[in-house]
Design a protein around this nucleic acid. Structure first.
Lengths: 190, 190
DNA sequence: CACATAAACGGAATTGGACTCACCTTATGG
DNA sequence: CCATAAGGTGAGTCCAATTCCGTTTATGTG
């Protein structure tokens, strides 16, 4: 699918402009109407829809990159810290990411808390990252076993979409509670 | 505000019919367009909007009662079980409630994860119920201190709105992790 | 270079849903 | 029985996303 014939030059330019416009808009306030994004990219809505099936698909594309970056961090954490510390840091990091803008939070929620096929890629990548963190923790006897990355993903999904006022503090607290919950049944200190 | 003048007889009848129609529709699939609800209640949309500011306000009203019932259960649990057991049961019960229909889950999410003023009453009631459960647990040294009911509410909000396939199992698992996380720093067994 | 043509683009029109409003209808208390 | 304020109606508005098709353009071919 990604290689059905290289895009025409103007098409690639427009596609990029759309992604840039969307990224700018989404990361800022998370809102942004389709027309608005098209206008910012100096393109008509029709063109936007030529490149992206739906508005959601555009959102997904914008955030795929952010998620990839986040997941890359997971590997780095695992290399530099004890498994439990890596896990804790990653959970907190997730909250930080959700905080960069309303849009990121909503996207993370969609990725984590739904089954929307649009976010399949991002979801798989995140689940894999968490699986690795959990597996390392379990191997070291620092984390209870029997929890899949997908489950943790879902638990976090909820807090990323929070739109309430003091949400970030709350989210960090919740991440900590989850972390402690994950350690609860570990084979080491119980 | 609840006593600006008793409603005219036909008005009360319509209001009730609307709530009944909405409840039926919401608890089932959670969808239900405004027009559809009005039709089921044998009333025009204008009438619906005379009684409820917005669609969301109608939703809120429908679920207020469910929430009240749920909260009443909290007191009962506290009377019949040890504080930690009461807390655990309540968390699991919440998931069960979210499972009665797509609509209930979505409503619970809105109540728990947002600041929407429409859900203020329900939110306050839920937070109070959780505060009591937590306080009892803390007093018995079975639950860590420093966590407010509101925070736990938010943590749960995320899982109640989940629309994914195997969500219920996941939600129960998450509720358990949260529960264990809440016990983690307790003064009794650490 | 000129042309054919598939690929892209534009943007008015359609759709779908919540919500409004100007105008009827009716309960009700005097 | 009537006046009248409360209540009801539903066609119409608004506002997004999405579609459709006629027009424009990049590009590779002769």
């Amino acid at each position: 699918m990604p290689s059905s014939r290289p895009l025409r030059a103007d098409a690639r330019r427009n596609r990029e402009a759309l992604l840039a416009a969307a990224r700018e808009a989404f990361l800022a306030d998370g809102a942004a109407h389709v027309e608005e994004i098209a206008r910012r990219a100096d393109v008509a809505v029709g063109t936007l829809y030529r490149h992206f099936e739906t508005r959601e698909a555009l959102v997904a594309e914008v955030y795929r990159q952010e998620v990839a970056e986040l997941c890359a961090t997971s590997a780095r954490l695992l290399a530099q810290h004890a498994p439990d510390e890596a896990l804790r840091t990653f959970l907190l990091l997730l909250v930080e990411h959700a905080a960069v803008g309303r849009g990121m939070g909503e996207a993370l929620e969609s990725i984590m808390a739904t089954d929307s096929p649009v976010f399949d890629d991002a979801r798989d990548e995140m689940a894999r990252a968490l699986d690795e963190l959990l597996a390392a923790g379990v191997a070291a006897g620092l984390v209870r076993s029997g929890i899949s990355g997908r489950v943790v993903l879902r638990a976090l999904g909820g807090i990323c979409g929070m739109r309430a006022k003091g949400w970030k503090d709350d989210a960090l607290r919740i991440a900590t509670i989850l972390y402690d919950g994950l350690r609860y049944g570990a084979t080491n200190h119980g």
